[in-house]
Nucleic acid binder design. Structure first.
Lengths: 210, 210
DNA sequence: ACCTGAACACCGTTCAAGT
DNA sequence: ACCTGAACACCGTTCAAGT
């Protein structure tokens, strides 16, 4: 069997996606690239949407399971949060078609997609909780705070990729800058919420988990 | 001529867009609804994308020029900003296909689309500046602060419309709540930036324009 | 269990005409 | 100036076969 026709089909679809966007992904061209007939894909996927869902699931799984080497030790949870959001934005900018596919409406509900998304969500929430413990973020529901970052990064990346962020062509506000701005405001808000002058030493000392 | 074939084509395309998303907009079905042949649209638009751009431009123009009656006097610029962002989110939720079309990549660069977008941007920046004057928002570049709100509202609406915001089906964070959260954090940051205890009376007194 | 070839209904777009 | 009808190349999907 060798590489497996199914994986080859997913590979070909992903390649077409990167080259020409989702509308360039054609079952006939996918079959052509793999070297099978134009309807061989129907023996592995129910239809075109199911094949696209498989591409999205693979992309999301790869992103969640980033090799630990590249996740170098960050100096603080706040910097890890910043780096995670910047990575998210860079991914959206470098692979806009994959980004739109993964976060588009999933007509078919793939189990793979759901669990991968949930895993990414949990990972981010963990970083947010750690950043709250160091005083970089204000207290409160970490899931909600994580959603705030995720929505900002998502919207910034989407607007930027469509050219709707900078108003006059000036580099007036990159999505990365917006993330940095939010981190700055939240640090100020966190310090106002529980000032570090209260009783103990430096606020960045490790505290007990929430 | 009556209503004009061109406008009728745009109407039909908008109707199909609302009913079945962008992939339901077909030049042949548009012609069918208007009662002309399947390629009569080519006498009014260069191609399908140009017709879609006209639909997007009309939608954006309508949104920018909201009848002043509905823009009731808000008690403060902060509340006007909140209402503007909530309106944006409600629009995205009620008309997801129009939302995606307007903010998708514009392959054809329509002059109409550009100026309407610029006008919406300027309108939002004005509200932000007013909110800064009342001390509800921290000082700094108002264009950048407006981009922060716009990116958050956009991302929240997009994630919510695709079902990617609430992690467990719980109503854990609506886009509107995220906007409210951001407004709360920015108010705290604004008060920390220039505390109202400095010299003058209540911070909400009208000041000179920026 | 996997693949092929013909076929169907649908598209976007072009072109030669019509009035 | 606006519209029509035929035609072309392309799709997604189905079906009857093949091994």
């Amino acid at each position: 069997m060798g590489p497996g026709t199914r994986d080859a089909l997913i590979d070909a679809a992903a390649g077409l996606l990167d080259e020409g966007g989702v509308e360039a992904v054609t079952l006939r061209e996918v079959g052509r690239r793999v070297g099978v007939s134009h309807n061989a894909p129907y023996k592995h996927f129910a239809n075109k949407e199911t094949l696209l869902a498989a591409v999205a699931a693979r992309e999301l799984q790869r992103r969640v399971a980033i090799p630990p080497e590249t996740r170098e030790r960050r100096p603080s949870p706040e910097e890890e949060l910043r780096a995670t959001m910047h990575r998210y934005i860079a991914w959206a900018r470098e692979h806009p078609a994959r980004f739109k596919l993964v976060f588009g409406a999933w007509s078919v509900d793939s189990q793979e997609l759901g669990t991968a998304a949930h895993s990414a969500q949990a990972q981010l929430t963990g970083i947010v909780t750690a950043a709250q413990d160091t005083g970089a973020l204000p207290p409160g529901d970490p899931v909600r705070l994580a959603s705030l970052f995720r929505a900002l990064a998502h919207g910034g990346a989407d607007l930027a990729s469509a050219g709707h962020l900078a108003p006059d062509g000036k580099g007036h506000a990159s999505p990365e800058q917006l993330i940095d701005d939010l981190l700055g405001y939240l640090r100020v808000a966190a310090e106002a919420a529980h000032p570090p002058t209260s009783r103990s030493g430096p606020a960045s000392s490790t505290s007990s988990p929430a």
